[in-house]
Design a protein around this nucleic acid. Structure first.
Length: 472
RNA sequence: GGCCCCAUCGUCUAGUGGUUAGGACGCCGGCCUCUCACGUCGGUAACCCGGGUUCAAAUCCCGGUGGGGUCGCCA
């Protein structure tokens, strides 16, 4: 009870799309907050005015919404808080923890190259540390004075105890020459101002953490706890990036993935709970914690996302939701517009959910049953629509015509009855019927096909099939 | 290159000193079946290497090798 309330944040930079690595960080933070009953803060780190775009900010909101990651506070835009950072930077200058540096980017680059050429560590040499005089024509940056000796210790909640020699730390820029603040500074100021208790982020920030720790110290602030999750890798085992393709979160929505499936796959990339694989969101909230997060980098398995996680969550999803998602997918991708109340949607979901790994596959499976015209697969016709099929389909037509209702149980009973009467397996009746109805030998269950087609259309196609079989 | 991190089937992982090293995706085969699927049964496939510690190491320690991250007035 004396524990301070858990407060975590997700702090993306709006410089592109939201990719899978960001998404996993957001998910981990959100789950951590929900599991511990804490607060989840969204903060947009748009300090780089050159690269940040409004469109990218919108993409972040959209991706968060789609994934179902609601935030309790924010979004806070760092670009609206520049005054705060400037004041804080001046405090550090006044206390001697930071200083103005008049070295130009060109000079720094030259020295960096030279250091590299001489195989030296290309860190800033600190030559402006004691400088008092301004330099004509140069707008200074404000640099933080890092210790030159000793070492810095981080007790990371995922990585464990990590120690770095302070010689590795160079005097980083807090405020650029144009007065805008840099990431390593704003992140410290904001995590402190927003009372963040745990910074949970990618391991690519690990080395920054040591620098940030010294900024906390200079302010006299108690730093939050840190947890650095190892990176998600592409198939080539390097940090997942644009190069690998298929890396934008919203692309998965467009390709027919369920958000909970992507969340499941991303969470399982680095977190586990025994042999369990499929986790509905509430289960994740119940179980997720840092102790089961691995600190080994993991290759993201795109195939398993589709074959396992999405397929499983499609099986778990409600009929109503799937019907609506199928309707949207059909409209968006195929221009097939159905009324939300169209009873065929539910039937299609029933017939397709177990043979679809994505909503796109489901829509593809639905299309033939919705099409006006039959497209004939000649191989299927040759195999199933020959000679005796004419007589059988004719008998089927008569049975179906006599049906009081044309629902799944009724039509299936009609087929079963016909097969029994003739001493045949159901397949001997269903396959010719399937080909006559759709032109293909592969489809959802025959009763679903008949019910979706409806009495009129089904009978018309069956009669055409009779003619074709007889004539063929 | 400096610093830091990592290392179980192809991939994600379980394992926490004594297991026939388990599960999942993929792949192969059987069964089920109105097709395709689903389901189900079985098979394929792993402890990076070398030293220690121990009666006993996938598990602990050290070294090597391999992979990754990071060294910006990007985040």
């Amino acid at each position: 009870m004396t524990q301070p309330k858990v407060r975590v944040r997700f702090a993306p930079s709006p410089t592109g799309y939201m990719h899978l690595g960001n998404a996993r960080t957001a998910i981990y933070n959100w789950l951590y907050a929900r599991h511990h009953g804490g607060a989840f803060v969204l903060r947009i780190e748009d300090t780089d005015r050159e690269r940040s775009t409004q469109a990218a900010v919108q993409v972040i909101y959209e991706a968060m919404r789609w994934l179902g990651l609601d935030w309790d506070e924010g979004p806070f835009l760092q670009s609206e808080r520049f005054d705060l950072y400037r004041r804080r930077a001046e405090e550090l200058v006044a206390s001697g923890a930071a200083y103005r540096c008049y070295c130009t980017p060109e000079e720094l680059e030259q020295r960096r190259q030279q250091a590299l050429a001489e195989k030296r560590n290309p860190k800033y040499d600190g030559r402006c540390r004691e400088r008092r005089e301004p330099r004509a024509g140069v707008d200074p940056v404000i640099r933080f004075r890092m210790p030159d000796t000793g070492e810095t210790v981080l007790e990371d909640r995922i990585q464990g105890r990590v120690v770095t020699p302070n010689e590795e730390l160079d005097d980083l820029v807090l405020l650029r020459a144009d007065g805008t603040p840099t990431y390593n500074f704003t992140v410290v100021v904001d995590d402190h101002e927003m009372d963040i208790t745990l910074v949970l982020r990618g391991a690519d920030h690990l080395s920054n953490t040591f620098r940030q720790l010294h900024i906390y110290r200079a302010f006299g602030w108690e730093p939050p706890a840190f947890a650095h999750q190892s990176l998600i890798l592409g198939p080539d085992r390097t940090k997942l990036s644009k190069r690998h393709g298929a890396v934008s979160v919203l692309q998965y929505r467009d390709e027919g993935y369920l958000p909970e499936a992507l969340v499941n796959a991303l969470v399982r990339c680095g977190w586990s709970h025994g042999d369990e694989e499929v986790f509905p969101l509430p289960r994740l909230i119940e179980l997720f914690d840092l102790d089961a997060v691995s600190n080994a980098p993991a290759v993201f398995d795109f195939e398993k996302l589709r074959n396992k996680y999405n397929a499983e969550h499609i099986k778990l999803a409600s009929r109503e939701r799937l019907a609506e998602l199928l309707r949207e997918t059909l409209a968006r991708r195929d221009g097939v517009v159905l009324d939300p109340a169209d009873p065929r949607l539910g039937l299609l979901v029933d017939g397709l959910r177990e043979r679809s790994r994505t909503l796109v596959e489901m829509a593809e499976g639905a299309r033939p049953l919705l099409a006006e015209e039959v497209v004939w697969d000649e191989a299927a016709v040759r195999k199933h629509l020959q000679g005796e099929a004419a007589d059988m389909l004719q008998a089927l037509v008569q049975r179906l015509e006599a049906l009081p209702s044309f629902d799944r149980p009724a039509v299936l009973a009609a087929l079963d009855g016909l097969a029994a009467e003739r001493g045949l397996k159901l397949g001997k009746v269903a396959q010719p019927a399937r080909v006559a109805l759709l032109g293909t030998a592969v489809s959802p269950p025959i009763d679903v096909v008949l019910a979706v087609l409806g009495r009129e259309r089904a009978l018309a196609r069956l009669r055409a099939g009779v003619a074709r079989a007889a004539g063929g």
